[in-house]
Amino acid sequence: MGADRKITFVLGLVAVAAVGVAIAAGRAGGPSGSAPRIAGGGVSATVDPGAVYDPIRAGETLPAGYRPLLGRDQIPPVYDPMFVSAADAGWDPETLVIGVAGEREAKAYPVGFLDRREMVIDSLDGAPILVSW
């Protein structure tokens, strides 16, 4: 592949990715639609898993019972969660949630959603927390 074609190819990929992100962002509104969204305590910039130290690649011995199945972040965590008010959530009252409460704030994460994404990087009262399922 020539350098020009390579660049065109990469730009094409970026365009496809941008459309994907736009669609995902539209969907992320979910039941709340245009309800005001509140930023959580995650991180906006993440790192490339391939650029970070990997104990397995480095030849470390893992404890017995360790079973690799997928690559890092193949099930992508929610690194930058957004929230809506309880009234705007529109959830079924019987929805199972993981709830955490601090001195100043309380947050709820629906288990059905966590089933698919497994991890949310967030904070509670300003302290960094990880919600996992």
């Binding site: 309880a86 929805t95 409460a101 947050k107 994460y109 059905g112």
Partner: peptide, 11 residues
């Protein structure tokens, strides 16, 4: 409480 901006349904 605030709610994660994600669908919530009965399990």
């Amino acid at each position: 409480t605030v709610a994660l901006d994600a669908p919530g349904r009965r399990l």
